[in-house]
């Protein structure tokens, strides 16, 4: 229960205008720091919702797949360059960001993850690895400025950020492929 409180505090801190402005001033921290932190805030708060709306989660997210689909859609949506731009210019989109990432991505992620079979877990990581590689490639080699609010150099930086995150996920996939945890337990 306490972690739900921490999650809420984290979300409130992220909402503070100086914090939001600082993180949004650089493209890569906007996408690779602010957005994941919002998801983590939701992830922490999920405990509260799980306890209070047990029935709801049991009914609608029985095997975890609907929740993880929702998570994937929200994450994919916020990976687009246009959405970031709109978040900076339109208050409504900015508000949607602070609602969707914690509550529509973080909460379902927590509820779904333990319910998923290892096939779905690996499929998800592989999907995001491919998505990140593609986005990295897009941001690095795009000849035009994709966002009005960010310079081309920031775009290239973000591309490398995607590539290095994808690299970390590949390391994890290789590790879990070669490691047979049952041998150690």
């Amino acid at each position: 229960m306490k972690q739900s409180g921490y999650g809420l505090i984290l979300l409130l801190v992220m909402l503070l205008p100086p914090v939001a402005n600082l993180l949004e001033s650089i493209m890569i921290t906007h996408m690779h720091m602010q957005m994941p932190i919002l998801v983590i805030a939701g992830f922490l708060m999920a405990k509260f919702f799980q306890q209070h709306y047990l029935q709801f989660f049991a009914k609608w997210n029985e095997n975890g797949v609907p929740g993880i689909l929702l998570f994937t859609i929200i994450m994919a949506y916020w990976s687009l360059p246009r959405t970031m731009d709109e978040a900076l210019t339109l208050t409504s989109v900015e508000a949607f960001k602070f609602v969707s990432l914690p509550f529509l991505a973080g909460v379902p992620l927590r509820d779904s993850w333990p319910k998923l079979s290892s096939f779905w877990k690996h499929a998800l990581i592989i999907f995001f690895t491919i998505l990140f590689l593609a986005l990295g490639w897009l941001y690095m080699w795009s000849p035009v400025q994709l966002c009005n609010n960010y310079l081309v150099i920031e775009q290239i930086t973000l591309g490398w950020g995607f590539i290095s995150t994808a690299f970390a996920m590949v390391v994890y996939l290789v590790y879990s492929y070669f490691m047979d945890f049952s041998k150690y337990e």
Binding site: I26, I28, I153, T157, W160, G161, S164, M169, V171, Y172
Partner: peptide, 22 residues
């Protein structure tokens, strides 16, 4: 340990991608 190493790589990425790319 594999997971900790992955976390470390992600954090190193967060820290060093910006200045190095620039």
């Amino acid at each position: 340990w594999g997971l900790w190493i992955v976390c470390m790589i992600v954090l190193v990425g967060m820290a060093y991608v910006i200045p190095l790319v620039d």
